[in-house]
Design a protein around this nucleic acid. Structure first.
Lengths: 349, 349
DNA sequence: CTGTTAGCGCATTCAC
DNA sequence: GTGAATGCGCTAACAG
């Protein structure tokens, strides 16, 4: 009963109409003033702002979205937010887009391509202004993204490269990752070098390809038995390592496609009674934060993560501002670096 | 020109009106059919569903929100999504709420209480259906949440306890955390036990209190010099440890309030030329995934994280369904457990 | 500089 | 079972 000007009760909050009535102006004027339009006199604007303050007015962003067709929301889809890589990327992304007035609607696909598709659809029909996706779709299945591109909603792929497609993307130079890891082992003097390969997404494939290239470049035997497939998790790394330990001759060094698989490999070695790096060397990739990091501390390849997220945010914002057509197709690639720790050494024999 | 029934061009997508016109029924009937209302004949419903499919109709959730006053969005505020604890909690949370048809709007406060306040306000004015918050507000400053409670928007606090308040919350039993850590050192035979305390949020305070309680219970000297304050990060843990190493006599064991500070403490020991655990023992809390985990591998206290997130989600959903008034004030508390690894041992002397 | 008209897409309320 | 009228809160387009 404080304000006797007829502000309706039982309302969620004050609206521009409430302010307009109280001030005896039109709703349109209030709307303009609130958005800082130049078409309003300073005096009116001040009155409006003051009244809004008093009434505790908060704009209803969804009502606004309904007419402007913009939501100020960025949809983000990751396979696993609890994986430190995606968590850090998301943080960098959130930093950049929130600074620009956008919010992040986060979806975790749990590595499930179908769930991922559903989430992308949901985000599109939620009219997000842009999308950032780390996809689990096989690199040979760019259909989802071709369709998405048709929808004209700007989107940026993270850590994924689709051959022959021109999507906006922010990636790590995975050929360099594979090269660094493999050549590190070569330089230590290894010649029996195995590889635990990841699932059919570009980081795994490119690292594998670089592994093969590096061996060939150094005229080292490529033994098919020494390439095993994993799923980028600890368990599959462990299994792959056991398989590798069963080959004859046995490799003296292993390049695991990512850190979890590298950790799994270390576990397998320990269980098999082998010392790392005395008996066998292991290098991985990702420099993930791993509580399960066993001893020895894993030699790995590192690359920036928050920085990668920020780059994705910037690229997306640029694409949104340019308008959906302009958006020059671009891929931003980050360089990895080798982190030599304790799981690699020259071959013993 | 495929459909000659006058579907407007230049539209974002088909609307219920489009479907209605095409079928010669009212928009209302379409709306009902789409939502599976029982008040529509089977035949009509089928026709509507089929037509919606053909037109690629997607409901506009914001238009719906405008009238239902529900958004199907859960706002989440964390101090640092790249911290594995919050990342894992968020994952568990997302799992539960997404299954119930909600989406997560994620905000990272970067440990900044002002940014946090702004984000909460933003989420409230975005009419989220509920909030989950891991706050950096000092435990003596529950004002933000008292206000939030007045707003009748259901919210759940994570990993934070505000004395004398009755907010919904999901927490770790931090007194038990402190007890486990301290008694582990006591049982190893230590009597000169130091503590590196965290910032003024409940996990830090409760662990500190439990540390004091445990010492008193075992009639061990409480030396004020042996309690130092940190900020829950590596750097402050390192500094605090240096300070502790400068005291005389020097403690033989340290309980670091969380893992980053514990890791910082290990760094300090190494830099000071001390061996852990031979010269000094370190126990921490959190079992974080830490790439920077130095050797020796940190003995710490562990607790469930995704599970904690799921509990927060369930609690929030229940609160949303009960209606804002009913919401019984409840706190769900999880038990921690000790993980003995390599950074603790009996005192050498 | 300000106001009027119209409508974004949907659901509530009440008729029939 | 179905429909018409009405409004959620806001802004675009145009008129003054």
């Amino acid at each position: 009963m404080k304000n006797g000007v007829g502000v309706a009760i039982n309302r969620t909050g004050a609206t521009i109409v409430d302010i307009a009535r109280k001030l005896g102006v039109s709703a349109m004027t209030v709307s303009r003033a609130l958005r800082g339009s130049q078409e309003v006199s300073d005096r009116t604007r001040r009155r409006v702002l003051r009244c809004a303050e008093e009434l505790g007015y908060k704009p209803n962003r969804w009502a606004r979205s309904l007419v402007t067709r913009q939501t100020s929301i960025i949809g983000v889809v990751v396979p696993d937010i609890s994986h430190s890589f995606f968590a850090e990327v998301t943080r960098g992304l959130e930093e950049v887009v929130s600074r620009a007035g956008y919010n992040v609607l986060l979806c975790d696909s749990w590595l499930d391509v179908e769930k991922e598709k559903a989430e992308i659809e949901m985000l599109v029909s939620s009219m997000v202004d842009g999308l950032v996706i780390a996809s689990e779709q096989s690199e040979t299945s760019p259909q989802v993204f071709r369709k998405l591109k048709d929808s004209k909603i700007p989107f940026v792929l993270i850590d994924r490269f689709f051959p022959k497609q021109s999507f906006l993307a922010v990636v790590v130079d995975d050929l360099e990752v594979g090269r660094l890891a493999t050549e590190h082992l070569v330089e230590l003097g290894h010649t029996r070098i195995a590889h635990i390969q990841g699932p059919p997404i570009s980081p795994a494939s490119l690292r594998h390809r670089a592994y093969l290239d590096a061996l060939r470049r150094h005229q080292i035997e490529v033994n098919r038995q020494w390439v095993r497939k994993g799923r980028f998790d600890i368990q599959s790394g462990r299994e792959a390592m056991f398989a590798l330990l069963g080959t004859k001759p046995r490799p003296t060094a292993v390049f695991a496609g990512n850190d979890p698989m590298g950790i799994g490999a270390l576990y397998a070695c320990r269980e098999a009674g082998l010392r790392v790096p005395a008996d066998i060397s292991v290098v991985a990739a990702g420099n993930i934060e791993g509580a399960h990091h066993p001893n020895p501390f894993l030699t790995t390849i590192d690359w920036p993560r928050e920085e990668l997220g920020r780059a994705a945010g910037s690229l997306l914002l640029a694409s949104i501002q340019e308008g959906s057509d302009q958006a020059t197709d671009r891929v931003k690639k980050f360089a990895p670096r080798l982190l030599v720790r304790q799981s690699t050494a020259p071959p013993s024999a």
